[in-house]
Design a protein around this nucleic acid. Sequence first.
DNA 1: GAGTTTGAAACT
DNA 2: CAGTTTCAAACTC
Length: 683
Amino acid sequence: MDNSQKKKIETPTPKSKFEDSPVFNYINNLSPIEAVRSIPTVQTFSSLSFASPPPVFTSPHASFHRESRFFRCHNSVERSKAFESLDGSASKQEVVVASGEVDLNKEATLEEQEEETSCELPLILKSHSQASDHVDSPCTGDIVTQVLIDPPRGEDNASTSEDVSVRLKKILDNDTPGCRRLMADAAELLVFRSPNDSEAFGCLVDKISSSERRFCAGVKLTKQYDIIKDVPASGSSTDNEPLAVVPSQAVSNLHRGSMRRRCLDFEVLGKRKKDIAEDQQTLCENNAESSSKCVVPGIGLHLNAIAMASRGSKINIIHEDSASVEIQKSFPGSTTPVNSQDIMPETLDQAVSKPGEGLAVEEETPKALVLEELNQDSLQKKKRRVDEPGEGESCKRCNCKKSKCLKLYCECFAAGVYCIEPCSCVDCFNRPIHEDTVLATRKQIESRNPLAFAPKVIRNSDSIMETIDDASKTPASARHKRGCNCKKSNCLKKYCECYQSGVGCSINCRCEGCKNAFGKKDAYLLTIMESKQEEDVSKIQQNPDLSKEVEQNPSSDQPSTPLPPYRHMVVHQPFLSKNRLLPTQFFLGAGSSSFRKPDGDLKQARNEKKPLETVTEDKTEIMPEILSDTPITTIKAISPNSKRVSPPHVGSSESGSILGKRTNGRKLILRSIPAFPSLNPNQ
DNA sequence: GAGTTTGAAACT
DNA sequence: CAGTTTCAAACTC
């Protein structure tokens, strides 16, 4: 150990060539610049280690905790591969390390840097020196780095995978309880999330080496920031202002910290995604798996991640910009819930496959907003959003008295942000100081309802809607995911979540006497039906056979009443129990945490009717035209109360046909339409 | 600013 | 899963 440490400190640079030369040695010791010079090639690494310079790494397990999620899941083989791919950059890493040392020596005054170097760089050095037992490092982040980095570099790659696991075990055994806990947690999370995403993992792994550390740095930075700020703040709960405290150097970090402070888990997630995306470009350009697949599999909770991914650069800006903090404060919640639009189709896919991510969108929103503001002259937008109901859910400032801001009653908590000064909450636990509690609570809530933190309002992605099914377009471009349940407000007051979100009521709503200014439920239904009707007509015209079938089918006794497209969709889902969930996930675009536990979704999907409706919309998007062709069983499907009415069951004779379009019977449709409906409309 | 209303969230 | 309670925002005065 001593040797390794010594090496870490003393021999950052290539030994063979330069050590002999006193001149070089001297230069190496004194000139950090040189070291930096060589870094450029490996963008990710360089940026990783140094992009976020200042205060970092002090942060304990918490930060690592998040990282651990990623790391744990990667299998050693993939890891080794990743490293192999990065092999060429090994020397660069070395250089980086060296530079880090230089910095350390040079900037002794900067505690942050010292911490950083001590925590992260050392490992790298150690790995270089082949010191296998670095367990001593208390920093969890080190573990990850160590595990990831060591194997590939090892002279003997043959046993890399095994070495990794062995080392990991060692680390776990030797590491502090906290670390173990984190690792365990990470494992849990991984398991929880999409285990099938080997591809994603693989891709991730590829990037992990670089991105990982980057994350580490970023996370640590933020974490540190939190610590710095929060700890003191604990004394005076109200004073969370980070800006004042932060060291001058850590400006960027500072901002991050501030953001972090206000935003929960998502932020980290978003950062990770961002990093991943970047890494993809640099490391995975050739990788067949698009970036989307490379998204972290299970991180789960937040749609933000997706949104973040799509906006990567912007996010960076936010973090980097000091102004972001101010903005955030002034418009903490101003962000409208993330729209599905924000979620790019590509990401959508992954979202679907990886539910966990979806939810975060809303949380992310604040950041997104900040970005927009920064990137654009968005003062107007800001105002507009604030003013607009719905769009302007804006400032999240709670006034919780009894919930401790740890329940969804709390707007801040529900939005995925920490409470801030403007909040008038009492006995608030939604503070960075109580991060663990917050995360635990959040987790608990999500376990109960995977979509609990999902954006409530879903904005239809035009691209998706248009490409998939124009007919599915509804009057409103956005709808409340679960709809409202207003009884007395007529959906004309902010009591109504739909109205508050600035969206019209939809099938999902169970409101009574809906007069939503943004769109009445009735109008919504009517529009859907009309559009469907038109669609059916046009299709029939195009395909005479279809009309014949319809006529022949007794069940289609209600030709005049077009069945909303969505209805079919719902029915079709084979794997949907009770006709729920799946669509929702898709529609959400991300499913959010729901992905973790599909079942939960089902449960969660509140009432039959709603799920149904929600599904319908979603399905429309998803389902091919063929499905939409399905004769409209009937409007009856949806009762006035928006309760679902089971359509008359028809003979199952047709159930066999994939298209099964004509069958009115729900069951038939279900069976007939597999996961991938036939593209042949003539069937 | 206090009190009331409202509907979501949480609980049973 | 439905009914009830709790909660905090929205609203009213």
